[in-house]
Simulated assay, not measured.
Amino acid sequence: MIYFTHLSISKSRINEKEEIILSHVRKEGKSWYYAIDLGKDANGKRKIKKKRGFKTEREARKALLEVESQLSKGVFIEPSKILYEEFLHDWIKDKQISVKNSTLETYKGIVNGHIIPSLGKLKLSEITARHIQNLIRDLFLNKTLSDENIQKVYTIIKDSLNSAMKFDLLAQNVCNKVDRPKAQKKEMQVWDIEEVQKFLDTAINDRAYLVFHLALTTGMRQAEILGLRWKNVDLKNGIIYVKEQLERYTHNFTSVKTKSSNRNIAIPDKTIFELKKQRKLINEERLLSGENYTHYDLVCPTSVGTPYLPSNLTKIFRRIIKEAGVKKIRFHDMRHTHATLLLKQNTNPKIVAERLGHSNTRTTLDIYSHLLPNMQKDTAKMFGDMLFSVNSQTN
């Protein structure tokens, strides 16, 4: 049995003509629905929008009033029937013109591996905040991704739904109702002087030795080391010019991460010696390989001139760590080790920030704040010794 419960008449501008629009709320079986006349389409046929599945009359009436309000303001968007996975594929294509290839590959991996399997078969208009919250929760509980990548899942969903709104496929972004997941900060692992020396002594005969040497002596990022070319190395003055990096999934050279990442790094005599030795090795390998050698002018290439694959470099890194018997850390932690050792020897934080390519000293101090208590203690002792040793001599 169908119960007529509500009839409203409102005015709206359709094709610049004023027409009467009818709407109503009714009960059908055990649930409620609303219907509203949206006017005529391009062929002159009337468009009636119906929305079913409301548990109560109040819910249906509230939803209808929202549609009527949007119509009166001229901002109503008819719910899209496009599947979310179809839209995401287009969204990825659009991103090609605004992000780097490495970022694009990250997006693809997250979209295809985690978002589409969970939400892809839903129509854009069917996605709710609850759907998104369930996905975020499941990823967190199942430890499927790191906290940082779960944040990326959230960011991609939010950005893609914003894009759908721009194309008038959605009236609102339901992701705004979901709190951005928090990432638990990973505890920083660094080596002390003894561990650095043990690691380098073990790695010295490995083909990739210079990669690790530069990471520890300059604090450069992995992509910056792999993208370092001889044209940006001044052996005479002992300076490395960090201007570009190598994209993770291609052999393309791109600009460095930020404006502040474009920097000059002074290097010690030992590093100059290792660079000269590396250049000699590369020249020998080019002669031996002949036409099989791929020349990119890289400072740290494989034996045939090609860039190292990060995954292969990680395997080498872990093997040497095991052989050296030192604490297991990530490749990026060698950058942290470099900064930590400098700060512990009371290097001015501004100099450390410049070597790392941080935009300001505050960024550096925020990252390495765990060192501050000990540094304060050492500074207080040095100041006390200086001040009171002078007083004691004069008394």
Rank of each mutant, 00 (worst) to 15 (best):
L119T: 03
A208S: 15
P310M: 06
W230F: 01
D201S: 12
I9V: 09
I115D: 09
E323G: 01
V352A: 11
E291P: 00
C300R: 05
T306F: 04
G357W: 09
S261E: 09
R207W: 08
E86D: 14
D37L: 01
K177E: 07
K276Q: 15
S12W: 14
F54E: 15
Y308K: 10
N374C: 00
T128I: 09
H295G: 11
E85G: 00
G325Y: 00
Y3V: 15
I92N: 10
I36C: 14
L372F: 02
T106Y: 01
L38S: 09
S102M: 02
H358L: 00
L356A: 08
Y308L: 09
M165A: 04
Y154W: 14
S261K: 13
K243V: 09
P349Y: 03
L372P: 03
K327M: 00
D138W: 01
T56A: 03
V174A: 02
T144S: 15
Q151Y: 10
Q184F: 09
M220Y: 07
L104S: 07
R13N: 14
K27W: 02
A60L: 11
S10D: 15
K322G: 00
I265F: 04
H6W: 10
D37A: 04
T5L: 13
H338G: 10
I21W: 02
F273N: 03
N391Q: 08
L119K: 01
P79H: 10
Q278F: 09
A215K: 13
Y209G: 07
S260W: 10
N112W: 04
T218S: 04
K81Q: 14
G305Y: 00
I77F: 13
K177M: 03
L298N: 08
E195S: 04
G305H: 03
V99Q: 05
E19I: 15
E85M: 05
K108N: 13
Q278L: 04
I48F: 05
Q245V: 15
L65N: 10
R52N: 12
K50N: 12
T294S: 11
K186S: 06
R26I: 05
T144K: 14
R355M: 07
T56F: 05
S125W: 07
N162F: 11
P310G: 02
R137I: 02
T364D: 07
S146D: 12
D333K: 01
E78M: 06
H358I: 00
K257T: 14
K243S: 03
H24D: 05
G219Q: 12
L287T: 13
T347A: 11
K143V: 03
I239M: 08
I193M: 06
K73E: 15
D269R: 10
H338L: 10
S80P: 12
N162T: 04
L119Y: 01
F87V: 00
A324H: 00
I132V: 15
R248I: 09
Q376A: 08
D234T: 08
S102P: 02
L298K: 03
I193G: 00
K381M: 02
E16V: 01
I136G: 02
S389W: 03
R318H: 05
V390F: 13
R46D: 02
P373D: 06
V25L: 10
V299M: 06
F76I: 14
E57A: 01
R58H: 06
T128R: 08
R221K: 09
V242I: 15
F253R: 07
H338C: 10
K185L: 03
N391W: 09
L83E: 12
V390R: 11
D297T: 08
T56P: 04
E57M: 04
L235R: 06
N292W: 04
L161Q: 02
K182H: 14
